[in-house]
Write a protein that binds this DNA or RNA. Structure first.
Lengths: 230, 230
DNA sequence: ATTATCTATAGATCTATAGATAATGC
DNA sequence: ATTATCTATAGATCTATAGATAATGC
């Protein structure tokens, strides 16, 4: 059996031995905090509960984090960062090498995919009242940047009737909300391909694209993403 | 001045006199709890904080409610109930006296309006993790009924391409989420007519309706609502 | 010596109950 | 007598710090 005892790190051993997590203690804590924050909320999660889930004593958390807030900040950033990075690359290609509709479709695909894969569905954390405090302005700014991109691409992609009726800011709010539908879906159960497809298509239709235009945009998105792919 | 001293009720007077609220003590408590739950979350709101906001002592809450849970249940129900009632009346008119698209438009208008007017934006409470517990099954069932109605009306109203691509359940999830965009908008600031219009139009477009069909549905919704009006 | 944990605990809550009290209403 | 409040408080947390300890690494 390949029971490799990973390079034992210095420090007093845990009262309850580590189990087999390959994660650093820091990441073990973040993972436990994420699961509990999502399930019970932030204030309802005690530092003791987090520690218990990790398998260490409550006080030991403070060696790694200043407190729950500190953990939260790190969790929040991981939940937008990936979309944001792809997005920054994407927008620069419009309209020279990509249509706005194609780029929007790609954005939605990426964002939905990121949210669908996020550990413990931490996208839900954004909805919690604690996160509305100034303490998290930095994170909210990143999310706003994402929303603005939705607004810009959406307005560019929009059919003239939609563009006339809905301002970019409003459209951005609606589109990001649509993409985030996936968060709610995950709450209720598994997210299937058909769910993702439905969300992407709805975002495009929200901009006034018809069935043919939707199909075109998706095709374009697929190749765009293949080009940017990791 | 019409400073009518409302019929003084029996009971020991408050240490800090009532101010001028026309609400019953029970409703004063609900109102304070709503504001604090929305702003800080449920667990982060102490019974002491609620009492303080009302202007009574912490222990006095327990004369009216068994605890925070008890208040929450009541708040949640007020936030769906109104939409639900109108909705039950609405659906029965399809397709005899109303088209599905017209009825869907009416549903969205009502729901958005209800959420836009709800005191302290208590629609946000639904998003909190505490509400996912079984304790609130009853409430969640009502919300599911609303979602199902969105799914049924949406699928009936849908253009054949959309109907083929998106199942009623999924469509219901997407549409209710769209309507609830108004909750997020309220978080950021005032909700304007243009916001409501944008949401209603987007729901219809999500079903594959084009500009002309959207306009028709809205017109129909207006007269439907006039007929059901309070 | 450094690192990562541990044990112990102070101080600050927070919830919910017991029992007293100050009004009204009969 | 009934009602709606009050005061006081027990018991259960919960957070964050101080200081000890058991490893590794030099």
């Amino acid at each position: 059996m390949p029971s490799d005892d990973r390079p034992a790190r210095p420090g007093r051993p845990r009262a309850v031995p580590n189990g087999d997590s390959a994660l650093s203690p820091r990441d073990q804590i973040l993972d436990a905090a994420a699961a509990l924050f999502v399930e019970h909320g932030i204030s309802a999660t005690s530092t003791r509960a987090i520690a218990e889930r990790v398998g260490i004593r409550q006080a030991s958390l403070y060696y790694h984090f200043a407190g729950k807030d500190d953990m939260l900040v790190e969790l929040l950033t991981t939940s937008v960062r990936p979309s944001l990075e792809v997005v920054r690359g994407l927008e620069s290609r419009v309209p020279s090498s990509a249509s706005a509709a194609g780029a929007l479709a790609a954005l939605v695909v990426i964002d939905v995919e990121t949210l669908a894969r996020t550990p413990h569905n931490i996208g839900t954390l954004y909805l919690l009242p604690e996160v509305q405090g100034e303490r998290y302005d930095g994170f909210r700014a990143e999310r706003t940047e994402l929303q603005d991109t939705y607004g810009r691409l959406g307005s560019l992609a929009a059919d003239s009737d939609v563009a006339a009726a809905i301002s970019p800011v409003r459209l951005g709010g609606i589109l990001i909300q649509l993409a985030e539908t996936v968060i709610q879906l995950r709450r209720d159960g598994a997210v299937e391909d058909a769910d993702r497809d439905a969300i992407v298509a709805t975002c495009l239709r929200a901009c006034g694209l018809d069935t043919a235009a939707v199909a075109d945009a998706r095709r374009e998105a697929a190749s765009l993403l293949a080009a940017v792919a990791v």
